[in-house]
Design a protein around this nucleic acid. Structure first.
Lengths: 189, 189, 189, 189
DNA sequence: GACTAAGCGAGACGGTACGTCAAGTCTTGTC
DNA sequence: GACAAGACTTGACGTACCGTCTCGCTTAGTC
């Protein structure tokens, strides 16, 4: 009994050009305005090929997120020993994105995708390095005594990202204020 | 000295039934799936009557938000003197909403609307009482010495709400963890 | 026994500007594309003022026809004694209209109006001078022996006009052929 | 036995049911009142399928005309040798249609369609057998000497049809008078 | 001279249809 | 059997007009 089947297997080229087109169109036009037909057209691919492998628009975005196709940015945070300054480094990456109107729209769009599609929601904060990078750095801060034991590091990570997102939704954003928030939350204890 | 024009005036009944239908359909089906045609049908109104007075779906939602048609909840926060417990009261109202799956979807939907429409974004945190209620209470905390001078109260409000939102987008939410966050941010100084 | 009513009477200025706008828009855009709202706008008049006095778009056109607001042409035919040449004079007026593409469209449009509205149909051939002018001239031809007794003059008039109309509907028209038709029908007996 | 299914090639079933619905609705309700949405609904077809293959309402009518879906009547004319009587046979078919109020409205409606759409105009007289049947019979009349050489047969055909149409637009029609016209034009030379 | 009541410009209203776009499903023919 | 292509039904988009119905203003008799 062989699980080998006749015929061609999944086309890597198609997958590549679909995700490529998805990422490009998403960045250019946002999540609303992103259409399966548009992706198929841009990717030179039949619609069915998309529907065959992804259940929804959101799943495409989630894959782009996982493969880092939406941001050029590296969200990894160094450990220089200075907790606050390291976290500000991470924050700076986020703020650099939303400083640019397109970047701001991109982040909002991504949040919009996450509200509609759980798969995107799952990837959202991860793809911005909250768990792997920010929370990880905070954990080190707990270990080396810069933060009290029992600090809810994941929550703190979500809170910092969340403050930025909430302000982005209100189309108001003030980098210096964001940094004050970080210093307030982490500092002066 | 009247600058009003002759002719028929805006129908209050139409406005009412449109916002009513909007709020109902939004709560039942979410922002995606909310259509102008559906609203018009449910409100017994011509589409043009909607387009005449609101520029977009989002503007309808923003109006619903302003008039408190989406949440039954009162986000006003008492001042008992106990800062942390008062903030937890506010947080509890939010958590009560998203404890229920429908409520969680409602909040996410609202965030989705905010990503697409600036008018909703403008109202989002306000309608959840962040400025008027939470940040106000924090300000009192600064005044009475429970918080250090220079505390960025608006930022802190956004951060607390933002943490909840980020977790809601990831479809993970832990009320007790959220409360720990509040106690961590505000407390033990 | 007063059947008088108080208040203002029908505004001659409104009537004038409505028919004016109707004729202009009809000539510029044709019967399809002619809208009550467009007329009201162009005439600087409320829609209700139109609906108050005319039951339909067609009735407006019929009034324009009656008052000769659609054609600059005079369809009266001289009696020079030469029947065929007099009829060709009349025909020449019609052909001069449809020689111009706009005039051709105007005639077609008028026919279109007549198909939808009996009031226009009633005026159509009359407004082109078929009864008063062409058929009248043919009658004289019967009297003076240029046409046989019993000639169905109205029918002949309709036939000549009808041939032009049918060809206009097919977007083919040949003035010389039309004149041959007249000479064939009337001549050489 | 065809188990034909829809597919990437044009669906014959859709075409058929669209033209079917068009012809039915046109006969029932006339050209004004004929809507693409109504046709789509009646045909059980998406609007886009209509727009994909026909540029306008008129093009649908033109196709119905070409395929003889609007008249049950056969406009072919026999050649019995008696020219006038043969032409009266043809005329009788037309008169039979407009004797009935619905038929009269149908003809008027068709004329209305022709005024708005060149494609219908192209087909109008052809579909009533003017060229293929009436003018052809007249040509034979020229050949066999019943009509003088040089008779403008096409024009005469248009004139006879045109007379009927003009009278139909005026909502006056007298079969006997129409026959007198034919006898006058063709006869007694 | 005040009091009607209709005509008027304006335009809101519930509708229908427009022509377009995209959704997701289904076929065809090619590789 | 995956693929590019694209026809199909469905349904929403935002716009244009329909014919009806107020509004508030102006004006022309009647009291």
């Amino acid at each position: 009994m062989s699980d080998h089947r006749a015929g061609p297997t999944r086309s890597a080229a198609a997958r590549e050009s679909i995700l490529d087109a998805t990422a490009r169109l998403f960045r250019e036009q946002g999540y609303d305005h992103l259409t399966i037909e548009g992706i198929a057209r841009a990717a030179g691919v039949g619609k069915q090929t998309i529907y065959r492998w992804w259940p929804s628009r959101g799943a495409l975005i989630a894959d782009c997120l996982i493969e880092g196709r939406l941001f050029d940015v590296d969200f990894d945070v160094p450990n220089t020993g200075e907790l606050v300054s390291d976290v500000e480094t991470w924050l700076g990456r986020i703020l650099a994105i939303i400083e640019n109107p397109d970047g701001s729209a991109l982040l909002r769009s991504l949040v919009g995708a996450a509200t509609e599609d759980a798969a995107v929601g799952d990837q959202l904060s991860a793809s911005l390095g909250v768990e792997r990078s920010l929370a990880e750095r905070l954990s080190i801060g707990v270990t080396d005594g810069q933060l009290p034991a029992g600090t809810p590091v994941e929550q703190v990570g979500d809170a910092i990202l969340g403050a930025v997102i909430v302000q982005s939704l209100s189309r108001r954003s003030d980098p210096e204020e964001s940094r004050r928030l970080v210093r307030f939350i982490l500092g002066a204890r």
